[in-house]
C-alpha cells in the first residue's frame, strides 16, 4: 500500500503580520480613531471579479466574524469569509509600491494593483 503525503492546508482563519498590524494602528491613529478595529471584506467587481475592501470601523456588524491578533480586532463578514479563509494580511513598503497585501491561498488570479482577485 502506498501513502501520499497531503499538502498541509492553510489555517482556516485570517492572520495579520506584525508589520501590517503596526500600520493599521498608525493609520487608525492618524485618522483620529486610535481604538478602531479593522473590517476586512470582499465585494464583487474589480479586474479579476472580486475586490478586497479594508475599513477602519468602531465595531463588528451583524453576522461579522471577529478575530483578534496582535492587538487588532479584525471583523470579517460571513459572506466574505469563504473567500478570505487562510489569508495573511501583510504590509509592503517595497519598490513595487506601499500598501496592504493580501496573501490569499484562495486567489487563483490577481490583478496588477493587488486589490482584485479571482477564485
Amino acid at each position: 500500500m502506498t501513502t501520499t503525503k497531503r499538502k498541509p492546508r492553510p489555517p482556516l482563519t485570517i492572520t495579520i503580520s506584525e508589520n501590517a498590524a503596526e500600520h493599521v494602528k498608525e493609520f487608525a491613529s492618524k485618522a483620529g480613531k486610535p481604538n478602531a478595529d479593522l473590517r476586512v471584506a470582499v465585494k464583487g467587481g474589480g479586474c479579476s471579479g472580486l475586490t478586497y475592501v479594508l475599513d477602519l470601523v468602531e465595531g463588528p456588524e451583524e453576522d461579522d466574524k471577529t478575530i483578534e491578533q496582535l492587538g487588532i480586532k479584525l471583523h470579517v463578514p460571513k459572506k466574505s469569509y469563504v473567500f478570505l479563509a487562510g489569508t495573511m494580511l501583510d504590509y509592503s513598503s517595497g519598490l513595487n509600491g506601499k500598501g496592504f497585501v493580501f496573501n490569499n491561498p484562495n486567489a487563483k488570479t490577481t490583478c496588477g494593483c493587488g486589490t482584485s482577485f479571482g477564485v
Binding site: 467587481g45 474589480g46 479586474c47 471579479g49 490583478c111 494593483c113
Partner: peptide, 8 residues
C-alpha cells in the same frame, strides 16, 4: 478610475 471587471 482603477479596477473594474475587464479593466486590465
Amino acid at each position: 478610475k482603477g479596477c473594474y471587471v475587464g479593466q486590465e
